[in-house]
Design a binder for these strands. Structure first.
Length: 425
RNA sequence: GGAGAGGUAGCGUAGUUGGUCUAACGCGCUCGCCUGGAACGCGAGUAGGGUUCACGCCCUCGUGGGUUCGAAUCCCACCCUCUCCGCCA
């Protein structure tokens, strides 16, 4: 059984062989071509093939002089049919692909079924919320009072939801980033420095596009998109590659700024630096085999939890239900730190197993040992952690009655051993 | 940004008057012979992906279009790399 396209390809090739053949003179070639043209017209491509290769017997007599042209016409008609059919296949597949890009990932069977984020399942918090003998202030009061967060000048520079960290505020953020990176490195994550902008295909590969196109910043001149998260860059690091199973799992960590337009939530979380257009995040990322990805998810959440423990800030794990999974995740846990000033749990980390969802889009495979067939890897991502909200948690949890803030012990090595942030001038 | 040279299988390269290119050769790799064991040498094999129970078929010579019965090869656009110049932290 041979496809029409295969017949076309074969006949074109055989025509080339015939025209270059020294076995026949011109009249004989014309005669063979004429016979082949008739066979093509009759739909008997195997017979046509035999004429062209000379396997069909000697050239028949009485071929018209323009038989070669006739054969070319016949092959052109055949090619037109093939192209028309291929065009229909392409159109259907393109349409299918376009629709498939809008289909979110399937939840893992262990994910609780519910339609609202209100049903997310909180685990028992770790660390006791501190008992205050005064009323703890929210960070949007603490920051300006300490002269370490400047909202007004941030807005002057860049508009709504922009902010400036100053003095201890900026240093505190830098210390947090270094702590996060060092803890990840200690767990075997390889540190990466990646571009902060990527090409459009990478956005599709990580599952940001097409659905979240409105949420990213775009430079139309350079045709590049600013990272909404390092996850986009790291996912595509091994795009179009086939890894060896012995290489897996791969652990990566990268610190990048994250740029988000946040158009959809213009009215929410307007006070302070909880939801901003630009923030710093240390991203943990894993490429694993399908067999190990759920165990790797647990250790990923543990890696992020360890950072919370190191800072000695009360936190809890939140098991995300089906209705709040988002677009790419099969299973997701959030980590939330308690913020006594604003009186809420703040999401500081989100750890997901996307299974093969991103790998399929970015074409990332691995070859199982002893197997010839490559298959998709599983990818996992998790914040470890994101700074603005951790800054909030540090300030609000460690604030003192006199308005100063004790520096968590884990951060002191990164701040010249300083123990306290106080208003200096 | 300007000028020039390039992009071919894991790597290096050949292939431009369009057709038997189903892409040659070298290295590397795999297997075998040889060896006490190795190296050397000799012989055989070896691009990837998709699809199929399988035979097979399809796609890929940077990417996308075009011309043609037929494109690694011809035409157009774009991307990237190298050398030189310009600019620059």
């Amino acid at each position: 059984m041979e496809t029409l396209q295969a017949a076309r390809n074969r006949l074109n090739k055989s025509l080339g062989a015939l025209r270059g053949s020294k076995q026949w003179d011109e009249a004989a070639r014309a005669a063979l071509a004429g016979a082949a043209a008739q066979a093509v017209a009759a739909g008997d491509y195997e017979a046509a093939e035999r004429w062209l290769t000379g396997a069909g017997g000697p050239p028949p007599a009485g071929a018209p002089a323009n038989a070669m042209d006739g054969l070319m016409d016949a092959l052109r008609a055949l090619g037109d049919r093939v192209n028309a059919l291929n065009e229909r296949v392409r159109a259907v597949e393109a349409d299918l692909d376009e629709h498939m890009l809008w289909v979110p990932n399937l939840p893992h069977e262990s994910v609780p079924v519910a339609d609202s984020d209100e049903a997310n399942v909180p685990w028992e918090p770790e660390g006791k919320p501190r008992a205050f003998d005064f009323t703890p202030l929210p960070h949007w009061e603490l920051g300006p009072a300490l002269d370490i967060i400047d909202f007004e000048r941030g807005v002057k520079l860049a508009g709504s939801r922009a902010y400036v960290l100053k003095g201890w505020g900026a240093r505190l953020q830098r210390a947090l980033i270094n702590l996060f990176l060092d803890m990840a490195r200690a767990r075997g994550f390889t540190e990466l420095y990646v571009p902060y902008f990527v090409q459009e295909a990478m956005m599709y590969g990580a599952g940001q596009f097409p659905k979240f196109r409105d949420n990213v910043y775009y430079d139309p001149d350079a045709d590049v998109y600013m990272l909404p998260t390092a996850e986009v860059a790291i996912t595509n690091l091994h795009r179009d590659e086939i890894l060896d199973e012995v290489q897996l799992p791969l652990y990566y960590v990268a610190h990048t700024p994250c740029f988000r337009r946040e158009k959809v939530s213009a009215g929410r979380d307007v006070r302070g630096i909880k939801r901003v257009h630009q923030f710093e995040k240390v991203e943990l990322y894993k490429f694993t085999t399908p067999e190990t990805s759920y165990a790797e998810l647990e250790s990923l959440v543990e890696a992020a939890s360890d950072v919370c423990r190191a800072l000695q800030i009360p936190f809890r794990r939140l098991e995300i239900v089906t209705g709040d999974l988002g677009f790419s995740a099969s299973k997701k846990y959030d980590l939330e730190m308690w913020a006594p000033g604003c009186g809420e749990w703040l999401e500081v980390s989100s750890c997901s197993n996307t299974e093969a969802f991103q790998a399929r889009r970015a074409n990332i495979k691995y070859r199982p040992q002893g197997s010839k067939k490559a298959q998709f890897v599983h990818t996992l991502n998790g914040s470890g952690l994101a700074t603005p909200r951790v800054i909030i948690a540090v300030l609000e949890n460690y604030q003192q009655a006199d308005g100063s803030v004790i520096i968590p012990e884990a951060l002191r090595p990164y701040l010249g051993g300083a123990e306290r942030i106080a208003r200096t001038g």
